[in-house]
């Protein structure tokens, strides 16, 4: 995945069954963001692989004050890339979801 400066990782072991997974997001390289970033640490959240849209979660992070509007796209892309990888791994390992 492209290095967006925003890192998203699993915050729990993926058993391949749950549709909702715990993720952790943090800024690895603030220089890659367009807006000024206030260092708040890592953000833990849950994401429904079947029903949620990464860009919507990114927008909620903007509305909660973690990021500026101009960085919503880059945050959304970072989440989308990680979600795609998780789904790909599940397909590869033959998980039901």
């Amino acid at each position: 995945a492209e290095d967006t400066g925003v890192r998203v990782e699993l915050n729990e072991e993926d058993d391949g069954k749950k549709s909702t997974i715990a993720l952790k997001l943090w800024v690895e390289d603030a220089k890659k963001l367009k807006g000024k970033y206030k260092d708040t640490g890592a953000i833990e959240f849950t994401f429904d692989l079947q029903n949620e849209v990464p860009e919507v979660v990114a927008q909620e992070m903007v509305e909660s004050g973690f990021f500026l509007e101009c960085d919503a796209k880059i945050v959304g892309k970072s989440i989308r890339d990680r979600v795609a990888l998780i789904k790909w791994r599940r397909v590869r390992t033959g998980s039901p979801n």
């Binding site: 890192r7 952790k24 390289d29 640490g41 890592a42 953000i43 833990e44 959240f45 509305e63 973690f66």
Partner: peptide, 27 residues
């Protein structure tokens, strides 16, 4: 505790925690 909880109006819960050790790029 170093964690803080932010609940978005849509109901999503964000928990702020320290960045995992060694996971920040060197400036």
């Amino acid at each position: 505790s170093a964690t803080a909880q932010v609940v978005h109006s849509a109901g999503r819960r964000f928990i702020v925690s320290p960045v995992p050790e060694g996971r920040l790029k060197e400036p």
